[in-house]
Computed example of a mutant assay.
Amino acid sequence: MVQPAGNFFAEPARSDLVELAADERSRFWVTIDTEEDFDWEAPFARTGYGLASVPALADCQGYFERAGVRPIYLVDWPIVADDRAVEILGAAQAHGGCEIGAQLHPWVTPPHDEAVSARHSYTGNLPRDLQRAKMTALRDAIRDRFAAAPTVYRAGRYGLGPDTATMLAELGFRCDTSVRSGFDYRAGHGPDYRSAPLHPWWVRTEAGAVLEMPVTTIFSGLLGGAGRAVYHRLARNGTHVGAALARLGMVERIALTPEGIPAARAREAIDIAVDRRLPVLNFSFHSPSLQPGNTPYVRTQADLDLFYRWWDVVLDHLARRGVEPTTGAEILAMAERKAIA
């Protein structure tokens, strides 16, 4: 079936992929889903969330500044509305220590015209006009609170839809980072990214082009290049199958995140990504993990200490491999140079 123009789910043309030149090296990007604290196991709700983890953003920013990394905070509506978050992140943005992008959680973003449900937690499942209204509200709130309109977008829960690219271009966004390559969210009413590329690519719409910068997921193991297809064929009905494949050394799915991925596995994935000459290694995590008790990945202070030690190990390995940090603005500039060339 022919996909409509501007659809993130269409297989990109070879000419739209962004690849490294012979004299270029891979770079890495740290993207942070900066959001409210809520129970990941509970039904979605417009109210009842917390913001206790917001002060921990200062420690996070301090850590990355000392490491020479400029993260991008993809902020959602409750974060934008919080004066403490604006003070912490606004000050860092003002002195060039970070970038600010948008992350849309539809259930807490106005206008509140939809029923709150698991299906509607993916923005791409909402009516087109409502999607656009929520995206516009979030963009304008970020512009007003941080004195600059965001150009990078992530759909909460990676919930892109067939109209998202066109709306992003119309609203002035230039880069999307919602595609989580190698993952399938159809069981929960979400998108299927199993076959998505790991390279950035241009999505062209009548309103303009948007660069897709997928979140990086690497498949390792004895099966080599065939591992990805085998994983999706065998592990589609349960993660226990994927765990068994990993224990056997056949194939393992490794996301570049400190949430649930051991540092040793992340180092392995970095080596594979660099050897494959990926232009950008896109790391991600959720800001509530910066405070114990908010996510399954950081339950205690010891877990939080391990979280930062993970970054110590990973950043050291990236430096050993000659992989330097980058930013959304630099990624766009690189991709535009290649488009012109």
Rank of each mutant, 00 (worst) to 15 (best):
265 R>C: 09
190 G>H: 09
259 E>G: 10
230 V>I: 14
212 E>G: 01
217 T>Y: 01
223 L>W: 08
232 H>I: 02
224 G>M: 05
244 A>W: 12
220 S>M: 02
278 L>G: 02
224 G>W: 11
199 H>K: 09
226 A>M: 13
179 V>A: 06
232 H>F: 11
272 I>Q: 13
233 R>K: 14
267 R>K: 15
168 L>D: 01
248 L>C: 10
250 M>L: 15
219 F>T: 02
254 I>Y: 06
263 A>N: 14
184 D>C: 13
243 A>Y: 12
190 G>K: 02
192 D>M: 10
266 A>Q: 10
165 A>P: 04
231 Y>M: 06
164 T>F: 07
232 H>M: 10
276 R>H: 11
249 G>P: 04
181 S>F: 03
266 A>Y: 12
226 A>E: 06
231 Y>Q: 06
194 R>S: 14
257 T>E: 01
245 L>W: 14
221 G>C: 02
167 M>L: 11
221 G>L: 05
203 V>D: 11
205 T>W: 09
241 V>G: 02
196 A>G: 02
244 A>G: 05
277 R>I: 09
237 N>K: 15
203 V>N: 07
237 N>C: 03
202 W>I: 07
252 E>H: 13
182 G>Y: 05
192 D>E: 09
250 M>K: 04
240 H>E: 15
212 E>L: 04
190 G>T: 07
205 T>L: 12
224 G>E: 04
272 I>M: 06
229 A>L: 11
191 P>M: 10
265 R>G: 05
220 S>G: 04
232 H>Q: 08
257 T>M: 13
181 S>W: 09
245 L>R: 02
237 N>M: 03
275 D>G: 12
270 I>H: 00
204 R>P: 00
198 L>D: 01
202 W>Q: 07
244 A>D: 01
256 L>Y: 06
214 P>I: 06
258 P>C: 06
255 A>R: 15
200 P>A: 15
267 R>F: 00
257 T>F: 08
248 L>T: 08
270 I>T: 03
185 Y>Q: 01
236 R>N: 03
243 A>K: 14
200 P>T: 13
271 D>P: 10
198 L>Q: 00
219 F>M: 07
261 I>R: 15
178 S>Q: 01
227 G>D: 08
262 P>W: 07
213 M>G: 04
274 V>Y: 06
192 D>F: 07
235 A>T: 04
190 G>S: 12
208 G>V: 02
265 R>H: 13
241 V>A: 11
240 H>R: 15
275 D>K: 13
215 V>K: 03
263 A>G: 14
232 H>V: 04
252 E>I: 00
188 G>R: 10
176 D>M: 02
236 R>I: 02
239 T>C: 08
231 Y>F: 15
186 R>W: 09
231 Y>W: 15
236 R>F: 09
208 G>R: 13
203 V>Y: 09
226 A>C: 10
172 G>S: 12
